[in-house]
Amino acid sequence: MRVQLGRQLLDRQIVDSAGRLVGKVDDVEFAVDSDGYPYVAYLLSGQGALGQRIGGRIGRLLVAVADRFTENPPTPPVRIPIGLVSRMDSAVWLRCRGEELPRPPVEAWLRRHLIDRIPGADRASG
């Protein structure tokens, strides 16, 4: 499959098979096949990955904020194998459900320490 990484993949929204928002394509990880050709093996998603891609002072700030709101820093990005991608248009659609992927660490931290402590956190208001 031919894709322009910068225009069609990076910074796109990742959506799971049920339409839930998983994250952005914050970065990609390459691997090299047996013939020596590099290919995109994983999509990386998470504030830490984004911070490292942006770099500089702002990037380091993003990484630091993500690390503050995580159980075990440094925060690893969510790595999504490229094989799970079913199609790409205005978003990157996955074949699987978001629950089958590792949960974003900052989401988990905020859920445990803030949102779950407020009554009514498990009811959608619609």
Partner: peptide
């Protein structure tokens, strides 16, 4: 940042 948002899903 690409987070899940909106009032259709529960706050958690």
């Amino acid at each position: 940042f690409g987070w899940q948002w909106g009032k259709r899903v529960s706050p958690r």
